[in-house]
Nucleic acid binder design. Structure first.
Lengths: 92, 92
DNA sequence: ACTTTATTTAGATGATTATCTAAATATCTA
DNA sequence: TAGATATTTAGATAATCATCTAAATAAAGT
């Protein structure tokens, strides 16, 4: 959970996630959309992958990244849990 | 938005939020529930307040902190936007 | 006014992080 | 196997962050 929030606490990484929401992309395609170096993007991708937010699969020379909705759903659940009646401590 | 995610990217701050979900608490009551120093908790509270996640109001010697659901709702919205059909780029 | 209690602000320190360049690895093609 | 392309790993550096102790501010009680 902490890895997830830490991964999301960076604007570049959130943008990457937004890009992957549209369609799967190779590391290079992702890097092309930013003005920072490829190694930096690679590092961000590794952070996102480590948090379980994205998956990767090699296809020839390319590595294709895709969103993994599982962790996003879990995190959404955290917020939903937050939205119960304020002060709700489960007394019926 | 970035302030929100950064504020949430710390376990102590998330725990503070969980505590405030149950009921409003003074700075001291919050600090009592952690093993780190009061100044550190005060700093965390200031980070959360800066992100709009909590409000404070002085009452005598105490400062009472409370959850502000507005930003939490907005952030929930971010996740909901994420949950649209994967690949959804709005072609009807 | 002085003391106590509650809280924050200041200033310092060690750890983590975002970024870079250079080098390594992996795959494909000629 | 040599060369080109795609990507990551290594190592360095500057910035940000979590934490601490000590000092300052605020309110209340004596």
């Amino acid at each position: 959970m902490n890895d997830t929030f830490k991964a999301l606490a960076d604007p570049t990484r959130r943008q990457i996630i937004q890009l992957l929401k549209e369609r799967d992309l190779t590391a290079g395609e992702i890097a092309d959309r930013f003005s920072i170096s490829k190694p930096s993007i690679s590092h961000h991708l590794s952070t996102l992958k480590n948090a379980g937010l994205i998956d990767d699969t090699r296809q020839g020379q390319n590595i294709i990244y895709s969103l993994n909705m599982t962790v996003i759903q879990e995190t959404l659940g955290w917020f939903l849990g937050m939205m119960g009646t304020k002060g709700d401590d489960s007394r019926v």
